[in-house]
Simulated assay, not measured.
Amino acid sequence: MTKTTTTDFDTLRDGDTIDGPTFAVSRESIRLFCDASLDYNPLHLDDDYMKGDFGRTNFGGIIMHGMNNFGLISRMITDWLPPEGVHRRLETRWVKPVRPGDVIQPTASIKARQTTHKSRWVLLDVQVRNQKGEQVAVGEAMVEFPSPTGAAA
């Protein structure tokens, strides 16, 4: 496994990895995401609400929006892709809550590559880990590298 910063499709290999930016989660960053997403669910804002059991889970305090993981993964992918590349699909599953004080980082590994008549495709396994190395989100993404003679569809 090698870390890749290249976005040259022909030099990519299965197992190559990509590191995304780290993100320090704070009450302020959670509040800003509430404002941006218009999601003011009390599980992101209200410590008193989160003191008890939430459904079958006791989170022990407010938690970050899961979609913030999605945003970090998207940023990693779009920062890595060449300008003509297209981020086509991203599916994630939240594994563990993220709390203020956590530092998270997305990573990806190349799972498969395929060339078609019009494009070249890369399938990525993606994940987000916290400062303890625990997975907080996992998923899969697909990106498109246009063929040298064609444009992305």
Rank of each mutant, 00 (worst) to 15 (best):
G66Y: 14
F9A: 14
D47K: 05
D48M: 09
K51I: 00
A137H: 08
Q127H: 03
D102R: 01
F70C: 02
Y40M: 04
S147F: 11
T116R: 12
T149M: 07
R129S: 12
R13D: 08
V122R: 00
Q127K: 10
N41H: 12
G139Q: 06
V138M: 13
D35R: 07
S74M: 07
M67D: 11
F145S: 04
E84M: 10
D14A: 14
F33D: 01
T149L: 05
T78F: 11
M64P: 01
N58A: 09
S26G: 07
P148Y: 00
T5P: 01
A112W: 02
D125P: 00
D79I: 09
P100R: 15
K132M: 00
R88I: 09
S37F: 04
L123Y: 07
C34L: 08
R56A: 10
D39I: 04
A112Y: 07
A108S: 10
G150W: 06
G101C: 13
D53S: 09
T22K: 08
D53V: 11
W80R: 04
V126R: 14
T115Y: 03
I63S: 03
K132A: 08
G133P: 04
R27Q: 04
I104T: 13
S37T: 08
D8Y: 13
G85R: 07
V98F: 13
V25R: 03
P106F: 11
K51F: 00
L72R: 15
L81M: 09
L90D: 04
M64L: 05
Q127Y: 00
G71P: 06
G66R: 11
H87Q: 03
G61A: 12
A137Q: 11
E28T: 14
F145M: 03
V126F: 10
V95T: 11
P100K: 15
